[in-house]
Computed example of a mutant assay.
Amino acid sequence: MTDLDPQPTVRLADPGALAAGLPHLLGFPPEESLVVVSLRGQEPMTVGLTARVDLPPPGHHGSLAGDLARSVRTDDPTAVVLVVVSEDDDGAAGLPHRTLVREAVLGFHAHRVPVRDALLVRRGRWWSYDCSGSCCAPGAGTPLPGGTSDLAVAAVVHGTVVEADRTALAARIAPTRSAGMAWACDEVGDELAAATAERGWDAVAEEGWDAVLTAVHGAGTARAPRLSDRQVARLAWGLRDADLRDRALTLALGESAPGAEAVWTELTRRAPAPLDAAPATLLAVSAWLRGDGALANVALDRALGSEPSYTLAGLLRTALDACLPPAVVRQVIREAAGPSGADR
């Protein structure tokens, strides 16, 4: 399992600040993980892309290191920092997971990406694998810094919510099924089929786009009303149309982005499968562009779990696994939208 997060650029003073800021980079505190943080520019370097993977079994160290290096290289880093997060005790060779760290360093070296530092985070303290001082000796370590960091501030500004763990993050969009919702989807589906036969799909699709704009603009108000079951059903059925869904992608680019993400979140939670695949994919795009790669990955898991053959979700999964920068995604959406933009 991999989580990739393009985050706002933040300057960090020391390795401890970076280690303490991992929950804000990922959206949740990592456990038993290898985290790679891309660093950009010259001194003082800035934080770029962040990638996290579960700690692998020994036989997979080399292949994992190569995959990570190829992915993070797309961020054009000046260097990277490796962070092992583990509660494992020290071994005969000292700090745990040294073999994994060595393979990761070799993997990045093969791709001409320097490893600036390799850290271990464990039980509220951090160590450097390269440090020979007494503070980095097994059983010692340095306490993680407290207080409000630059990363915490940036996370709040950009809308990243830090959950207790990845399970809690997934729970934010967990399905909330009801008999009323299922009935509304059946009823609205029958109504749309009849309307399409009578007036044609173009007219029905345009009404669907108007419904999307109304919901998104309403969600951007201070007291946004909860969508009714019929509204959720109408929006979810409308987004099954690829052209309408692609128009909805453009809402992630401008002032409507917060309202759009709120609507996609509600539809993902309430619409039954496979009607939740489209809004879950739209939510993934919105989260990715906002810098919340953890939520983007969770939303994509939801979309592909609901409908494994959903093409846009599959393409986006490939893009995220390759660390496609959000700027490239924005440009693709702008080009697809044309000069008229989102609210045409």
Rank of each mutant, 00 (worst) to 15 (best):
A322H: 05
L320Y: 04
L55W: 03
L315I: 06
L213A: 10
V216G: 08
P77I: 09
L244W: 05
V328S: 12
T167W: 06
L227A: 02
T148E: 14
V285L: 03
L22Q: 09
L95S: 00
Y129A: 08
L315M: 13
L82P: 08
L55H: 12
H217E: 13
A79W: 04
G254K: 07
P175R: 10
A287N: 11
S63L: 11
G62H: 14
T2F: 13
E207L: 02
T46D: 11
A137P: 02
L304S: 01
G91E: 10
W127H: 11
A203L: 13
A182P: 03
L4G: 10
V332H: 08
A205R: 05
E255M: 09
L119N: 01
L12S: 03
W201K: 06
L106C: 05
L213M: 11
A51V: 12
A236N: 02
P143E: 12
A327K: 09
H111S: 13
G124Q: 00
M45I: 07
P23S: 02
S33Y: 08
G189L: 00
L227I: 06
H61T: 05
P308V: 04
A69P: 02
G341C: 10
A284D: 01
V188H: 01
V105T: 14
R122P: 01
A277E: 00
V121L: 05
L12G: 08
R245P: 00
A179H: 02
A327V: 15
R98I: 02
R269Q: 15
P23E: 08
I333H: 04
G293Q: 01
R122N: 07
A164E: 14
L55T: 07
H109W: 10
